[in-house]
Design a protein around this nucleic acid. Sequence first.
DNA 1: CAAATATAAATGAATATTCATTCACTTAAA
DNA 2: TTTAAGTGAATGAATATTCATTTATATTTG
Lengths: 196, 196
Amino acid sequence: MRERDEQKQKVIKEKAMQMIVKLGIEGFSMQKLAKAANVSPATIYIYFKDKEDLILQLSKETGDKMMEMTFKNFDPSMNFSEGLKLQWMNRAKYCLKYPEHSMFLEQIRHSALHDKFMSTMGANFKANMHAFMANAIKRKELVKLPVEVYWSIAFAPLYNLIKFHMSGKSMGGQKFVFSEKIMMETFELVLKALQP
Amino acid sequence: MRERDEQKQKVIKEKAMQMIVKLGIEGFSMQKLAKAANVSPATIYIYFKDKEDLILQLSKETGDKMMEMTFKNFDPSMNFSEGLKLQWMNRAKYCLKYPEHSMFLEQIRHSALHDKFMSTMGANFKANMHAFMANAIKRKELVKLPVEVYWSIAFAPLYNLIKFHMSGKSMGGQKFVFSEKIMMETFELVLKALQP
DNA sequence: CAAATATAAATGAATATTCATTCACTTAAA
DNA sequence: TTTAAGTGAATGAATATTCATTTATATTTG
């Protein structure tokens, strides 16, 4: 019996991600992928049921790693400003260390596959965040508000900065580069909004 | 000489937008569009140079209308909290009145055509926003900060709420419906962050 | 005023390419 | 020797775009 060449699967996944990031899902095809990964189109079908399965598997792995890094060293019982800051740092670190992965996830988020992807995503992420919020509100370190409002203020600004950074420019087309200084300046204002 | 049936072009554009919103750019094709709009594929090429031209024209028109509504009754010399509130109201109104248009623009924003689209977009939008910021800072109604930080705090939370609303759910997959109450609650916190 | 002409709109079928996927086959190694 | 990995070429459907015609109508003629 011949063994699977796991290296081969790795190359297929890497090239698939690169291709989706560069060309969008609309520009991604199995035949182009086969060429880029130096395998026969048929080989891809040994490792993945079909195109959708390939993209979903890739999404799940990437999403899991992102979640793992986001909650590294995090505990829902943490003091609010510390806990939020840790999450900002973790998220930023992930996006800057793996820009390709985070751009890939962004593509998935805006594709027709988004729902199928989300249904595989962590339920304990939700639990974690709720516990963190509830603790912070009880300790009067956070104003009382709906989760959606909380999330929108606590994280949307960070993701927006990262989006500017990724595209290399902000709204007018002006150049923009992310820095810890800019991030912390933004963080302090967000904290001001959320603290009682 | 036979005249162009402008109604026909209108139907083509409407169906194109619907199709892109429903299926994503990756699921959009000229032949499917022809069928949906009840015209011959060749007819589309009378009105548009090619597929890209069609999408870009549609994007430009949609983007222009969005900008127009966003800055309705707005003046950069307005008092800060009033001016920002007006923009929030205008943006929310646009997204809720034309959900299809705003979802379409969201698709374009995350497609390979995004750069070409942005290059056609308003330069006076940039000027407007800068003037508004500068005035507000001078009057000490807004803390001094880089445009990117300003934008990320001033608008990203609103767009995030709208995104939740459009998808009908928030982060955990929980149901979510936008309301003016929720919006104003968020707005007040954003204001707290941005005011000195 | 009506018939003829000119012109561009509109078309359905065709083209050449690319797509996802499968098949009959070869190759490596347990 | 057996088993599954791996293949290149094929399949049939879908893709963007064009072609040779037909159709409608504004203008020009008789």
